[in-house]
Structures are given as structure tokens and as C-alpha cells.
């Protein structure tokens, strides 16, 4: 799946950052350095970022601006990272978060 907006009547959608690779739950995906992690993984068709603590329900993008924490994932061993306001870096290792998850 590709959800990138490449052509737009108003916006210039040229990517500023270099194309890099990041790993999500063991799968390597392409991303642009500096874009929010959430944008890169959404483009790769991954819509579930975490599962809730008690009922293990899936959660994904909800506010997109760092307020709601529904997009929290485990990033480079650190739990509860809001992927909508955290920029991609080459080689990042990202995992779907289970409950509160513990950092590594």
C-alpha cells in the first residue's frame, strides 16, 4: 500500500529528508528521515500502534499532534513514544506496544 501524497494542487510534496530504512515488528520499511514515525508506518499500511492495557484493544492515529498518546509505540527499546511527534532516524527499531510495555 502507498498512501503518500505525491501530487498536490497547492502543496509541494518534495521530501526534505533522505530515504532511509526502519524496522517495524521485524519488517523493514522505507521512510524519510525527519518525518513523523507514524506517517512512515501508516504509508506502509500499518494502522495499529499499540494494544490497550486491560482489554488488549488495538489503537492507532487519533489526534496526530501529540495529545492523545494512542499512537505510542516502543522505539529503540523505549516504551510510550508518541510516534506522531517523533521524527524518523535511519535504522530505528520500532515495535507495536503491548499495554504499558517496559523499556529495554
Amino acid at each position: 500500500m502507498c498512501l503518500r501524497v505525491d501530487h498536490h494542487v497547492i502543496l509541494d510534496c518534495t521530501h526534505v529528508g533522505d530515504e532511509v530504512e526502519i524496522t517495524v515488528d521485524g519488517k523493514v520499511i522505507k521512510a524519510y528521515e525527519g518525518e513523523p514515525i507514524l506517517a512512515a508506518i501508516l504509508n506502509a499500511g500499518i494502522k495499529i500502534n499499540r494494544y490497550t492495557v486491560k482489554r488488549k484493544e488495538p489503537r492507532g492515529l487519533f489526534c496526530g499532534i501529540g495529545q492523545c498518546t494512542d499512537c505510542a509505540m516502543v522505539v529503540d527499546g523505549k516504551a510510550n513514544v508518541r510516534t506522531c511527534i517523533t521524527p524518523v532516524k535511519a535504522g530505528m527499531v520500532i515495535k507495536t506496544q503491548d499495554g504499558l510495555a517496559k523499556g529495554e
Binding site: A39, L61, C63
Partner: peptide, 20 residues
């Protein structure tokens, strides 16, 4: 997942250039 704020959808397309 897939239910979101309209502003969240707007951020994704206009700022991050990825469709929700």
C-alpha cells in the same frame, strides 16, 4: 484504528503528506 479527529486527518495529508 481508522477513527480519528478531522484535524488528525488534515495533519496527515497537509503536513506529513500521507493519506490517513
Amino acid at each position: 484504528p481508522g477513527v480519528m479527529g478531522a484535524g488528525a486527518a488534515q495533519t496527515m495529508i497537509n503536513v506529513n503528506h500521507v493519506k490517513p
